[in-house]
Amino acid sequence: MIKTSKLQFSYTTGTEFHFPDISLAEGEHLLILGASGVGKTTLLHLLSGLLPVSSGNITIEATELPSLSRKQLDAFRGRQMGIIFQNDYFISSLSVSENLALRLYFPDKKKDNKRIRELAARLGILDQLDKKVTALSEGQRQRLSIALALINKPKVIFADEPTASLDDENCEKVIALLKEEASISKASLLIITHDQRVKTMFKNHLQL
């Protein structure tokens, strides 16, 4: 469950953003569209607690983000959120399965090899688990990003331009995969994009 009210953020450079209120129930999907420069990534970073709000409120799973300390926020993000960034980031010294295991390690020191294998199998990267992340293809990297966002069974999933670098066919596949995985873990899915191709695939839209 995600709820925002009168969300505002201003950078020290003076750029100011006012965001429309968002309300998303458990298991619901929302697509946020907007041209570049309207603050899409800023919104995602606010929602995930990576940026502190200037004013307004964000409530995720009955927790008000602005009221949390930095440390509590780190732990809350680790437990409740799965984030797919515009660029894919991995720990390059580790293998695919170790990256997934590390995502489970924070913040609760969990270990779950079964979960890793099961998710990797569903995303078609089971035979890549022992490979170094640097050896993966573009498509495999995209799948690993998704796996990393889902492995912790988060209540909300944020995705920033997940389809930007994909062709039409793969674009559809990835969105389908995200929707499917979100429903399996009953998570709310919030996708931020300027990619008009994705528009038809979602009922709920919000234009920034």
């Binding site: 995930s48 990576l50 930095r70 440390k71 780190d74 732990a75 809350f76 993000r77 680790g78 437990r79 984030i83 960034f85 980031y89 991995f90 720990i91 390059s92 590390l102 995502r103 390690y105 924070f106 913040p107």
Partner: peptide, 15 residues
């Protein structure tokens, strides 16, 4: 970037 990524995983600055 990797350290920032770990923060999004829920790692604290202390960790």
């Amino acid at each position: 970037q990797e350290l920032a990524l770990l923060r999004t995983y829920g790692a604290t600055s202390g960790q």
